[in-house]
C-alpha cells in the first residue's frame, strides 16, 4: 500500500471493486459503445456528404437555389429518421440510467455499519459507531471496511465543501457544511483502494487523499478491536519523555485516547502508528517522514494548517518514539 508504484488502478472507475462502481462501470460500458457507434455513423455521413459531389469548385460557383424534389424528399426523410433515432437512443439510455439509479440508490438502504465521515481542510475524520455501546472509534484518512457489508457513510463538513470519492467502490458524494449527506457502499473485493477529495476545497485540495482498506470480516473485527483500545501507557523513560513533549506541544490540537490530550482540531492520533500513511495520504508513515512532518509540515504540504514545531532534536526523537508506540 505504501508503494503506489505498480498499484495501477487503485483509484480508478474502470477497476470496480464494489457494488456501486460495478453497476456504474456496466452502465458506462453501454454508453461508451452506443456513443461510439453514433459518432462513427455521423462521421460516415459527413464523409459521404463531402465525397458526393467532389471537385475543385471555384469560389465564384453559382449557387443552387432549388433542388430536385425527389432528392429533397429523400434527404428530408433521412434527417427526420435520424432525429427519431436520436430520440429513441436517448430514451433507451435514460431508461438504462433509471435502472441503475434504482439499484445503487435504494430509497431505504440496508446498513450493517455506520461511519461518520467529516471533511476538514485537508484531511478526513472517520468515526465508527459501535453498536450496543456508547464508545466510538475515531481515526483519520484510513478507513477499514468489512467486505460484503453495507457501509453507510454519514457525510459532514467542518469548513468548506469537500467530496468523498473512492472510484473503485462507488461514485462521489459531497460533504457540505450545514447539511448531512449519506452514501452506502459495499466493497466486494478485498483490496486497498485510494480516494481523494473531488471538490476544490483550498490550497491542499490536491493532497486530501484517503485510503480505504476493504478486508475480510474477521480481519476487520480484529482491526476494530485494536482501534477501540486506548493508547498504551509509556513503558520506558524515553517514551515517557516523548509523551511529556507531546502534551506540551501537540495536545492543543490532537487527541490520544487514554491520555489528557483531548483536542479535536487535528487528526486523532491514538493509533497513528497503525496507519500506513500520514498527512492525508501524502507520505508513507515512516519515522523519517513523520519527523520531517512534525518539524515543518509546510515543506510537504504548503498551506497546511499544522504549524512547524521547533523542537530540540532530542525532544523530537522522543516524541517520534512515543508516536511509534501508538499502534
Amino acid at each position: 500500500m505504501l508503494a503506489l508504484a505498480g498499484c495501477g488502478g487503485i483509484q480508478s472507475a474502470t477497476n470496480p471493486g464494489g457494488r456501486g462502481a460495478d453497476a456504474i462501470y456496466g452502465l458506462w460500458s453501454v454508453f461508451l459503445v452506443v456513443c461510439a457507434v453514433v459518432w462513427l455513423l455521423v462521421m460516415a455521413a459527413l464523409v459521404w456528404a463531402m465525397l458526393r459531389r467532389r471537385a475543385r469548385h471555384p469560389m465564384a460557383l453559382a449557387p443552387e437555389l432549388d433542388s430536385d424534389p425527389n432528392t429533397k424528399r429523400r434527404l428530408r426523410r433521412t434527417v427526420e429518421l435520424a432525429t427519431v433515432a436520436t430520440l429513441v437512443i436517448l430514451l433507451g439510455l435514460t431508461g438504462a440510467t433509471y435502472g441503475v439509479v434504482s439499484k445503487i440508490f435504494p430509497v431505504h438502504p440496508r446498513t450493517d455499519l455506520t461511519i461518520e465521515l467529516t471533511g476538514h481542510r485537508w484531511w478526513w475524520e472517520a468515526r465508527y459507531e459501535l453498536p450496543g455501546t456508547s464508545a466510538s472509534v475515531v481515526t483519520a484518512n484510513e478507513i477499514h471496511l468489512p467486505v460484503g457489508a453495507d457501509v453507510t457513510f454519514v457525510l459532514r463538513s467542518d469548513d468548506v465543501i469537500h467530496s468523498l470519492w473512492v472510484p473503485n467502490l462507488d461514485g462521489k458524494t459531497d460533504l457540505i457544511p450545514g447539511q448531512t449527506n449519506t452514501l452506502t457502499v459495499r466493497a466486494d473485493r478485498p483490496a486497498t483502494y485510494r480516494g481523494q477529495c473531488a471538490e476544490f476545497c483550498g490550497l491542499q485540495h490536491a493532497y486530501m487523499g484517503l485510503f480505504v482498506v476493504a478486508e475480510s470480516p474477521p480481519k476487520f473485527d480484529q482491526w476494530l478491536e485494536t482501534q477501540r483500545r486506548p493508547a498504551p501507557p509509556p513503558d520506558n523513560p524515553d517514551v515517557r519523555h516523548g509523551l511529556d513533549v507531546f502534551m506540551a506541544n501537540c495536545a492543543s490540537c490532537h487527541r490520544v485516547r487514554g491520555t489528557g490530550a483531548t483536542a479535536t482540531v487535528g487528526p486523532d492520533l491514538t493509533h497513528v502508528a497503525s496507519r500506513a500513511t500520514i498527512a492525508a495520504g501524502r507520505l508513507p508513515n515512516t519515522p523519517g517522514n513523520l519527523g520531517g512532518w512534525v518539524a515543518d509540515a509546510q515543506q510537504q504540504k504548503p498551506g497546511v494548517l499544522m504549524p512547524p514545531m521547533r523542537l530540540p532534536p532530542a525532544d523530537l526523537q522522543s516524541v517520534l518514539h512515543y508516536l511509534g508506540t501508538l499502534r
Binding site: 462502481a21 458506462w28 456513443c35 436517448l90 439510455l93
Partner: peptide, 17 residues
C-alpha cells in the same frame, strides 16, 4: 456524446469534478 454520458446520474457520480 460525452454530454449524454454525464447527463446520466450514476456515470456523473464517477466523472463529476
Amino acid at each position: 456524446l460525452s454530454g449524454v454520458m454525464v447527463a446520466s446520474v450514476p456515470i456523473d457520480t464517477q466523472v463529476h469534478d
